[in-house]
Amino acid sequence: MTKPAPGDYVIYSRVLSCTGEKLAITFCKKGGPATVTPLTYRKEQVWTISNYSDGRTQYVIPKKDSSLQVGWGDTGAVVIPAGEYVWTIRSGNEGFTIQDGDVTKNWGIVKGNTNEKVCISVDKGQPGQRWILEKCKGRNS
């Protein structure tokens, strides 16, 4: 399993919406949850992944506001002021997993609904806990 190279990405779920759309992690507002919305490649769906100094974990930063990071809140993945919030992001046969630094809980979605919050829970190997990372090539980056 390998981690992604630093750069700008859209991150979308292996689960499609009920209408067959790809659901991308989307930045809504500072202090708010990360949600999934139909993939459009708009700036709110672009995330900068950068390496943390431990060489193992990485930051997930909304391209729209580089002073923020994705952290772990009461409701799941939340976008809050930067504060050393790091994640273990690794590729596997079924897509990428995004886990806490201790590799005990995964980012995921349950139903594949538009505006569904990205939750953090124990890995059950479900498609909703696997992600596709698509590197941005000049698009909104």
Rank of each mutant, 00 (worst) to 15 (best):
P4G: 06
G7D: 10
V10K: 07
I11K: 06
I11W: 07
Y12S: 01
Y12W: 09
R14G: 08
V15A: 07
L16Y: 08
C18F: 15
C18M: 14
E21F: 11
E21C: 10
A24C: 06
A24D: 02
T26K: 01
F27V: 07
K30A: 14
P33A: 09
A34P: 03
A34R: 02
V36M: 01
L39W: 09
L39C: 05
L39M: 10
Y41M: 08
V46R: 05
I49R: 01
S53N: 13
D54C: 08
R56E: 15
R56P: 03
I61A: 06
P62L: 10
P62I: 10
S66E: 13
S67N: 07
L68G: 02
G73S: 04
D74S: 15
D74P: 11
G76R: 03
A77W: 01
A77Q: 00
I80M: 10
P81S: 12
A82D: 08
A82W: 04
A82Q: 10
G83Q: 09
G83K: 09
E84P: 06
E84K: 12
T88A: 15
I89E: 00
I89S: 02
I89N: 03
I89Q: 02
S91P: 03
N93P: 09
N93M: 08
F96I: 04
F96N: 08
T97N: 04
Q99P: 00
G101C: 10
G101L: 05
T104F: 05
K105C: 06
K105H: 08
V110H: 14
N115W: 12
N115Q: 11
K117G: 01
I120W: 04
S121Q: 14
Q126V: 14
P127M: 08
G128N: 03
R130F: 01
W131N: 02
C136M: 15
G138S: 06
R139T: 15
